[in-house]
Amino acid sequence: MALNEDQPRLGCGRIIDDVWASIDQPPTVHEQTCPDCQSARLALHQLEAVAGSLRERDRDDPALQPGLRVKEAIMMVARAEVRRSRRAPLATTALGVIDISEQALSGLIRFAASTLPGVRARRCTISSTPGTPQSAPAAVDAGNVRITLTVAIASGVRIPATMDLLRERINAVVQAQTSITMQQIDIIVEDLYDF
């Protein structure tokens, strides 16, 4: 068969994959008499057992974990790159402009969503111009903030009522914390989860 061309075979012609697939079952009539299959079964059985031990041992071996510095280095890069993201000016004072990063604004929106049971905020896209997808201007226009939030909803939650409540909640929290009034809040339910 062309499909099994690159499959290694035993002396008796059987594909090793087939021997492996039935390794936990009693030997077939052929396997009881075929010396090729018998030794293959034995060897594959042993391999499976040792591989299983190795898998469990490696998983719990503290020496087989990256050092703490690795995660620190990763997070240092991530933090530095977040600081360079888009920002929305909130107010101008004698000392300069006070602004909020897009990430902090998304975080605030996720926080607002998390106060409603049965709602898990996922992606949040912030834009200033309707219909222009992410042409990424350097700053977010705080006077014209539009968001699209995707959420996962607990199964059994009444969606229309929850969406209304979610919009209200997001608006209230963002306004109280940043004085930004949202121009548009689109919510997409993309997933359900068991509560």
Binding site: V82, I100, Q103, A104, G107, L108, A121, R123, T178, D191
Partner: peptide, 29 residues
């Protein structure tokens, strides 16, 4: 408030991984 928003109400361990990945996609550290 904004920097500390989120964690007190919901723990990431309680969420599904797709939700966590989605948030990381938006730059949630």
């Amino acid at each position: 408030d904004s920097d500390e928003a989120g964690p007190p109400v919901e723990a990431l361990d309680d969420l599904d991984e797709s939700t966590i990945v989605s948030r990381a996609q938006d730059g949630d550290l």
